[in-house]
């Protein structure tokens, strides 16, 4: 067991965690942040993607103890408040980039990390950045369109 101090969605937290607990299990079971999904638990599908220090990581392959001292962003921290959505969330809705919703959290966080680094990515860049996230329902085309839509919205909101 180890004591970890971390910041989750802007809020400081201290926890005691087992050595073998993954960050995904920690977020889901200890913090009740079940929006982080587990689709394969071997780092292939990307459903569990969260952002650690601005970079997307696989929470299923990342131990909770590694998160000590880190800033973590999960799907629950993406919307600015209870009634509004962030541009990328809104674009996923408007662009019908969501079907069953299971891959959506990971897709959104990967897309957010991309847009934070590159506010105006072209299609190839989006495909390259996001190809570690698998969608089995709606296909990828609408997700690419949604990322582009969010990029446009970002551009108009921040001249």
């Amino acid at each position: 067991m180890k004591v970890i101090n971390l910041v989750i969605n802007g809020k400081s937290t201290t926890s005691i965690v087992g050595d073998r607990m993954t960050l995904a299990d920690y977020l889901r079971d200890e913090q009740g942040l079940t929006g982080t999904r587990l689709g394969c638990e071997q780092g292939v599908c990307g459903a569990c993607t969260v952002i650690v220090r601005k970079r997307p990581v696989r929470a299923c392959l990342y131990l909770a103890v590694q998160a000590d001292g880190q800033e973590i962003e999960t799907i629950e921290g993406l919307a600015p408040n209870a009634t509004e959505l962030s541009p990328i969330q809104d674009a996923f809705r408007q662009g019908h980039a969501v079907q069953c919703g299971f891959c959506t959290s990971g897709m959104l966080l990967t897309a957010k990390a991309l847009l934070d680094e590159n506010p105006n990515p072209d299609e190839d860049t989006i495909r390259d950045w996001m190809h570690g996230n698998i969608c089995r329902c709606v296909g990828y085309q609408q997700i690419i369109e949604a990322v582009q839509l969010a990029a446009e919205q970002n551009a108009t909101e921040t001249p």
């Binding site: 889901r28 079940t34 929006g35 999960t74 799907i75 919307a79 969501v98 919703g101 959104l108």
Partner: peptide, 21 residues
């Protein structure tokens, strides 16, 4: 028509079986 279902999913608030506690 934007779907009802997506409103919860983009917030990570869908309730899948592994979320049942």
């Amino acid at each position: 028509r934007t779907t009802f279902e997506s409103a919860r999913h983009v917030r990570g608030r869908g309730k899948f079986v592994a979320d049942i506690q």
